[in-house]
């Protein structure tokens, strides 16, 4: 009994240390964001908050004159992408869940099949397509192609199937709704929880998107945060304090969302992946 206890305590310690290792980079990111480069480069490095945050941000804004615009771009693109996904995915998911129509199963299988296409395969031609369309350096080059993902359709279909009985749709039809108003007045109000989950997933995905903006944005002003941050690299002496301040700004919205909704986010992501 005693022996068993010892091993369990040991395991708790290992898991706890592991959790600290997982969180340590975030900790240092925040610490470094408040220190000058000189402090960061000293041995041992700082382990507690300093007072240089404002200087670091000043430095950041000097090196990246459009930084706040870049932050705005990230928000703008992520929000539009999210809104479009909620609309299009829920419409498609509704159709696949509630209508009996010819080729429904083929259509559904096809949509699921597109998830197998790895993103890098389209990287080059997409960049060219955007160039021909004249969409380079415009936000729509990022939100239009990502406006309706297969995973979102799948999640919506699953949720609608389980949350809305067919009779409800029929009742609405009897009550004089046309097909779009059934969707808008009956389906949409009832799938708000799924909107929350899908919205978080899409927002985070687009916020973190790096490869997409990398190939379609080359004007500093139109950069999203990840692009802006990486442009700080390799400019002589790396400004670690400023980079960490910028990284913190990129990560804080995600940490807030995660803290508020970790359960829903984790469940949504695993369910989407496992069943999809």
């Amino acid at each position: 009994m005693n022996k068993l206890k010892k091993s369990t305590i040991f395991a708790y310690i290992v898991v706890g240390l592991g959790a600290m290792i997982m969180l340590a980079p975030f900790y240092f990111m925040f610490i470094f964001a408040t220190h000058s480069n000189g402090d960061i480069l000293s041995v041992p490095p700082p382990l507690w908050f300093g007072s240089e945050l404002m200087n670091n941000i000043d430095y950041l804004l000097n090196a990246l004159p459009y930084f706040w615009h870049n932050v705005g771009m990230s928000f703008y693109i992520a929000i539009i992408t999210t809104a479009l996904n909620l609309l299009f995915c829920s419409m498609a998911g509704y159709a696949l869940a509630m209508y009996d129509f010819k080729y429904r199963n083929v259509i559904f299988a096809f949509i699921m099949g597109t998830m197998l296409i790895p993103p890098f395969l389209g990287m080059i031609p997409t960049a060219l397509v955007m160039k021909y369309l004249g969409w380079l350096n415009t936000p729509k080059a990022l939100y239009i192609p990502m406006a309706c993902g297969a995973m979102g359709i799948f999640m919506m279909k699953q949720f609608i199937t389980s949350a809305i009985p067919k009779e409800l749709i029929e009742a609405a039809r009897m009550d004089g709704c046309n097909e779009f108003s059934i969707y808008w007045r009956v389906v949409v109000p009832l799938i708000k929880p799924a909107f929350g989950t899908l919205g978080l997933i899409v927002f985070i995905g687009q916020w973190n998107n790096f490869m997409g903006p990398l190939v379609v944005m080359n004007d500093m002003k139109m950069f999203t945060i990840p692009l802006a941050l990486r442009s700080l690299q390799g400019t002589g002496m790396t400004p670690w304090g400023a980079i960490c301040a910028g990284a913190a700004i990129a990560v804080i919205p995600l940490l807030i969302m995660f803290t508020l909704s970790s359960r829903r986010l984790i469940d949504g992501l695993t369910a989407g992946a496992v069943k999809g």
Binding site: M22, L23, I204, L229
Partner: peptide, 26 residues
């Protein structure tokens, strides 16, 4: 949550932080 949070954070931001954590002299 502690183990999962790296999965949803910006890989660019966090790779930059790691670059500093892994630097040679400090």
């Amino acid at each position: 949550g502690a183990y999962f949070v790296p999965f949803i954070t910006s890989s660019v931001a966090i790779s930059l932080v790691f670059t500093s954590l892994f630097s040679r002299d400090f």
